[in-house]
């Protein structure tokens, strides 16, 4: 586990415990926001989308609390070695989580626009499946950190590759639908942006897993991931 042995100064342990509890609370809220934003989209539920948008503020506040608690811990306890790396990792992870929540909020905002002119059902369904994969990735990234499980962290990092491939695939799929039926271009464009949001959440999951490796080993893992997301280049490739 992440806190494996006790400090002589027990108040330091309490500080670290509190910091990790805050991070896990934030993680839970962010996982929830991603899940609910996806559910709101699939069910075209504007009310649920609105609540995701509203709850984002709470996540921002927790992130501020974590930042403050981490700074206090550094100032008052002068942490060293693994303790120091853990606190730095917590700060970075809370930052990544806050960005994930922003992406969920963005998805929710677009949902309200999509409800006005719904796209094809199958395009939304594939986005729902994509979101589920990324939700699992975020959960695993937080688990690997809190369990101090290096092999799980490296597995999360490797899985980003698959997410990038699916994102490219979705991009092509949506292009095809739009070419076939120009009336759904507006709503499908929103879906494309949502797909990008979800893909960015996966990047943050990778960053969280990298922080877990840093916390455990003192080194960030080397970037060996092949880049498979060629969505940005698809249009020009298709013109050839």
């Amino acid at each position: 586990m992440i806190l494996d042995s006790k400090h002589i100064n027990s108040a330091f342990d309490e500080d670290l415990d509190r910091l990790l509890t805050q991070l896990m609370t934030m993680g839970g809220l962010v996982e929830n926001a991603i899940r609910e934003s996806s559910r709101a989209l699939i069910n075209l539920d504007t009310e649920l989308a609105e609540s995701v948008i509203k709850d984002d503020h709470r996540i921002d506040l927790i992130q501020e609390d974590i930042d403050m608690a981490a700074v206090n811990c550094i100032a008052l306890r002068q942490p060293q070695a693994r303790d120091l790396r853990m606190i730095i990792a917590v700060m970075r992870i809370s930052n990544a989580l806050e960005r994930c929540a922003d992406h969920a909020k963005n998805t929710a905002k677009r949902t309200s626009a999509i409800v006005e002119a719904p796209p094809l059902t199958e395009t939304i369904a594939s986005l729902g499946r994509f979101s589920k994969l990324v939700q699992a990735l975020i959960k695993d990234s937080l688990d690997c950190f809190i369990q101090a499980d290096e092999s799980k962290a490296r597995d999360v990092i490797a899985r980003d590759h698959e997410i990038d491939q699916i994102h490219s695939g979705l991009f092509r799929e949506y292009l095809t639908y739009m070419l076939e039926k120009p009336s759904i271009i507006t709503s499908t464009m929103h879906l494309m942006f949502i797909a990008k949001n979800i893909e960015r959440i996966s990047d943050h999951a990778t960053a969280i897993a990298e922080q877990a490796v840093y916390m455990m080993t003192g080194h960030l893992p080397e970037d060996e991931r092949p880049k498979n997301d060629d969505a940005a280049y698809v249009a020009s490739a298709d013109q050839d």
Binding site: H7, I8, Q80, A81, R82, L84, R85, G218
Partner: peptide
Amino acid sequence: IFTNPQDERTESYITGRIG
């Protein structure tokens, strides 16, 4: 030594786990 000690005893000492 202070960011990434290699020996567990060093780690325990500088993080305040053994005195």
